[in-house]
Simulated scan of single mutants.
Amino acid sequence: MGSALNPVNSSLIATALVPIAAALHVSVGSTAVLVSALYLASAVAQPTAGKLAEEFGPRRVFLTGIVLVLLGGVLGGLGQSLAALIAARVLIGVGTSAGYPSAMLLIRRRAASAGMSAPPGGVLGGLAVAGMATVAVGPPIGGLLVGALSWRAAFLINIPLALAALAMTAYGIPRDDPPAGRRTAREVAARLDVAGIAGFAGAMTALLVFLMALPHPNWTALAVSLALGAVLTGWERRTPTPFFDVRQLVSNGPLTRTYLRAALTLLGVYTVMYGLTQWLQAARGMSSVQAGLFLLPMGAVSALVSRPVSRRNLVRGPLVTAAATMLVASTGILLLTTRSPAVLIVGVSLVFGITVGTQSVGNQTALYTQAPADQFGTASGLFR
Score class of each variant (00 low, 15 high):
residue 46 Q to P: 09
residue 90 V to I: 12
residue 43 A to M: 00
residue 21 A to T: 11
residue 96 T to L: 03
residue 83 A to V: 15
residue 18 V to K: 07
residue 79 G to S: 13
residue 28 V to Q: 12
residue 35 V to F: 10
residue 61 V to F: 05
residue 115 G to V: 02
residue 124 L to R: 01
residue 26 V to R: 10
residue 98 A to V: 04
residue 102 S to F: 05
residue 124 L to E: 00
residue 127 L to A: 04
residue 36 S to Q: 09
residue 57 G to I: 01
residue 60 R to H: 13
residue 95 G to A: 10
residue 75 L to S: 08
residue 65 G to N: 02
residue 103 A to L: 10
residue 43 A to F: 07
residue 59 R to H: 09
residue 71 L to A: 13
residue 121 G to P: 01
residue 96 T to D: 09
residue 21 A to N: 07
residue 38 L to N: 08
residue 74 V to L: 14
residue 82 L to R: 10
residue 41 A to C: 11
residue 84 A to S: 11
residue 27 S to P: 02
residue 57 G to C: 00
residue 42 S to E: 08
residue 125 G to T: 00
residue 119 P to I: 07
residue 25 H to A: 14
residue 48 T to A: 07
residue 35 V to I: 12
residue 80 Q to L: 15
residue 104 M to V: 04
residue 34 L to A: 00
residue 17 L to W: 03
residue 124 L to A: 10
residue 59 R to V: 04
residue 59 R to W: 05
residue 72 G to L: 10
residue 33 V to W: 01
residue 94 V to W: 00
residue 84 A to I: 15
residue 89 R to Q: 00
residue 55 E to P: 06
residue 48 T to M: 03
residue 115 G to M: 10
residue 124 L to Y: 08
residue 106 L to H: 00
residue 102 S to A: 14
residue 113 S to E: 15
residue 75 L to K: 05
residue 100 Y to Q: 08
residue 50 G to W: 01
residue 69 V to T: 03
residue 120 P to Y: 02
residue 90 V to A: 07
residue 77 G to T: 11
residue 45 A to E: 05
residue 52 L to E: 01
residue 87 A to V: 14
residue 15 T to D: 08
residue 61 V to H: 09
residue 19 P to T: 06
residue 110 R to A: 14
residue 110 R to W: 12
residue 26 V to Q: 11
residue 99 G to N: 07
residue 70 L to I: 13
residue 16 A to F: 08
residue 53 A to D: 03
residue 123 V to F: 02
residue 57 G to R: 03
residue 123 V to M: 09
residue 59 R to Y: 00
residue 84 A to R: 13
residue 84 A to D: 12
residue 91 L to N: 09
residue 81 S to K: 15
residue 108 R to K: 13
residue 64 T to V: 15
residue 122 G to E: 06
residue 51 K to Q: 09
residue 97 S to G: 12
residue 54 E to I: 08
residue 33 V to H: 11
residue 52 L to Y: 04
residue 117 S to M: 10
residue 40 L to E: 02
residue 32 A to P: 09
residue 19 P to D: 04
residue 41 A to R: 01
residue 93 G to K: 04
residue 102 S to N: 11
residue 49 A to D: 01
residue 110 R to Y: 12
residue 60 R to L: 11
residue 18 V to A: 03
residue 116 M to C: 08
residue 36 S to I: 08
residue 50 G to H: 05
residue 91 L to H: 07
residue 69 V to F: 06
residue 22 A to T: 13
residue 99 G to H: 05
residue 113 S to W: 11
residue 75 L to H: 10
residue 90 V to N: 03
residue 21 A to L: 09
residue 116 M to I: 02
residue 111 A to N: 06
residue 97 S to I: 05
residue 42 S to A: 15
residue 91 L to I: 12
residue 122 G to S: 12
residue 38 L to Q: 01
residue 62 F to D: 03
residue 30 S to T: 15
residue 22 A to Q: 13
residue 69 V to N: 00
residue 78 L to K: 14
residue 64 T to H: 15
residue 49 A to E: 04
residue 66 I to P: 03
residue 52 L to K: 07
residue 119 P to Q: 07
residue 93 G to P: 04
residue 116 M to A: 09
residue 85 L to D: 06
residue 53 A to E: 06
residue 116 M to N: 09
residue 73 G to R: 01
residue 108 R to N: 11
residue 121 G to M: 02
residue 50 G to Q: 01
